[in-house]
Each structure stands twice: as C-alpha cells, then as structure tokens.
Computed example of a mutant assay.
Amino acid sequence: MKKELHIFFTCLMFYTRIPCPKNITHHPDYLNKATRYFPFIGWIVGSISFIIYSLFALFLSTETAVIFALIISVLTTGAFHEDGFADVCDGFGGGWTKEKILMIMKDSAIGAYGAIGLVLLFLLKFKLLSESILLFQIYDGMAVFKIWLLFVSAHSLSRLAAISIIFTHEYSREDASSKSKPIAKQFTWKEVFGSFFFGLIPLLVFSYFDPKVLFAVIPVFITRYFLARYFQKWIDGYTGDCLGATQQVCEVLFYLSLLFLWKFI
C-alpha cells in the first residue's frame, strides 16, 4: 500500500502542480508505474474544475463560470497538456521531416501554429462545455451531479486515450531529451488495467443516468487511432507532446460527441 501511494503521488506530482509530500521524486521506475493512475488525475482535475465552476455559477453566468473552470484546470496541471498540444501544432505544422518536427517540438518558444491552435482549442472547449451545461440546467433535475460527471468523464477518458498510445506504439526520440521518456520504457498488465479502470469508471456511472453517453467512446478512440497513426507516419512513434495533444483533442471530441448524442439521438 505504501508503494502504491508513492506511485500515485509520483503521478500527481508529475502531471499536476498540486503539492505532494517532500519525499516524492521523479524516480524512473515509479514514474513508469504511475501511468496506471494517469486517468485518475482526470478525476482530480475534473473535480477541481467543477468546484470552481459551481462556485462562480452561484454569482455569475454559466459562460463566465466555464471560463474560470478552464482557467483552474490550466493552473492545476501547469498547462502541461496544452503545452504539448501547442508544440505538436508547431512541430507538425512547420516540419517536413522527423528530425525537423522533433526539433521544433523541443523548442520552448511557441509559434504561429501553436498560438492559433490554442486559441481555437479553448474557444471550442468554452462553447461546447457551455452548451452542454445549459442543456443539463434546462432539462435535468440532477443537473449538478451530471455536470460533475461531465467534467470528470471528459478528463479521465481523454487521458485514457492519450496514455493508451504507450501501450501500442514506440517512443520516438532515441535520446533522453524528454522528461516523458521514463514512462515509455515498459509497462505491465497493472498499468493497462489501472488506466482503463480509472479512465472508464466515471463514464460508466454517467451511463447509468443516460446510456447514450457510452457511444462517446467511439469517436474518442477513433480520433486516438488516427492521431497515433499520424504520429507514427511522421515521427515513427510518439513523444510526450503527442500524448498531451491527444488528451486535449480527445477531451474536445468528448464534449462534441455528447452534444451530438443529446441533440440528435
């Protein structure tokens, strides 16, 4: 149990800015095992975002509360995944060879592709989240609980889609230049089981109230498949930035899929 707690806190410290016990370090072995808890981080980030949304929604409009929810999610993770998304936009938008793409993604400066991508990403998140929440508020008596499930399911499922890439593809960089390299070394059935368990549980609870939400898994993992295929084609695998980009894109696809299901099915 003590070892599992250490692994969990390693995951929490690596993927968020939440304070952890001082004896927790980025040990490569623990960091590799910590992938089993990566979707559970989505429970935490989603819940924090929901709490901030709920507090601001008491006094302000839904749209304004959603903006504050997005802000707190970025602050909680340190823009970890958003940074990866921007790097992927810059790398694949401006590079035409594996070496060039990897070099651009390693650069800490943000380019035009990354900036434009982030603006469009946050606009989509804001609009889709606001519309989803308004639907709950209008038609549902259990709106608060379902809005919480919406936040948590989006963050956990998108993280599952991202981390599952390490189970099926090889890490692209040959050196140790990326801080995400340790998670790419090896994994066991515990990492696979833990990822899928924590990634799917919130959605399964959500489906108890509305079975249609289970269909959102299909477009999310279709998107994950084509993203992984695209990364494989251009850089022979993935990097930590690719995982971050996958998480962000799949989160948006989840919101979009639910809106489509609720409005047309």
Rank of each mutant, 00 (worst) to 15 (best):
H155G: 08
K185F: 14
R224W: 11
I147E: 03
P219E: 10
I218F: 14
D210V: 01
I163C: 02
R229E: 12
P182M: 04
I163Q: 01
A154T: 15
K179L: 13
K181F: 13
D236T: 09
R229Y: 10
S207M: 05
I147A: 04
V152P: 02
D175C: 10
F226G: 06
I166Q: 02
H169E: 15
S178D: 10
F193R: 08
I183V: 12
F145Q: 12
I165M: 14
I235W: 03
S158Q: 08
I222Y: 10
F193V: 13
I218V: 15
Y238W: 08
S153V: 05
I147Q: 03
L227A: 08
T168S: 14
A162K: 01
P182Y: 02
E174P: 02
I222G: 08
W234F: 14
V220K: 01
S195T: 12
D236W: 08
W148H: 10
L203N: 03
I183E: 00
F206K: 01
F151Y: 14
S164H: 06
F209S: 01
S156C: 15
V220P: 01
S180T: 13
S178I: 11
W189Q: 10
Y225P: 02
E174K: 15
R159D: 05
A154K: 05
L204R: 03
F226S: 09
W234G: 04
A228H: 05
Y238R: 00
S180L: 02
S172M: 04
S172P: 02
Y208T: 07
S158P: 12
I165W: 05
V213R: 00
L150W: 06
K185S: 14
V217S: 04
F145G: 11
Y225C: 06
I183H: 01
I166Y: 03
Y238K: 01
Q186Y: 15
V217A: 07
S195G: 10
L149H: 00
V205I: 15
Y238G: 00
G194V: 00
F145N: 12
I163F: 04
F215Y: 13
E170P: 07
R159K: 15
T188M: 03
S158T: 11
Y171M: 06
L204E: 06
E174N: 11
S178L: 12
F167R: 09
T223F: 07
F221C: 08
P182L: 03
A228T: 09
G237I: 09
D210Q: 08
S164I: 02
F226E: 09
F187V: 03
I201K: 00
L157T: 10
F167I: 10
R159C: 06
F151E: 02
S177R: 13
V152I: 15
L227N: 03
A162W: 03
Y238T: 04
L200F: 14
F187D: 02
P219K: 05
A228L: 07
F231I: 08
R159I: 05
L157A: 11
P211H: 03
F231S: 01
Y225E: 08
F197I: 10
L203A: 05
L150F: 14
F221Q: 07
S177L: 11
L214P: 00
P202M: 11
T223V: 12
S153M: 09
Y230L: 11
S158K: 05
S178Y: 06
F198L: 11
S195V: 06
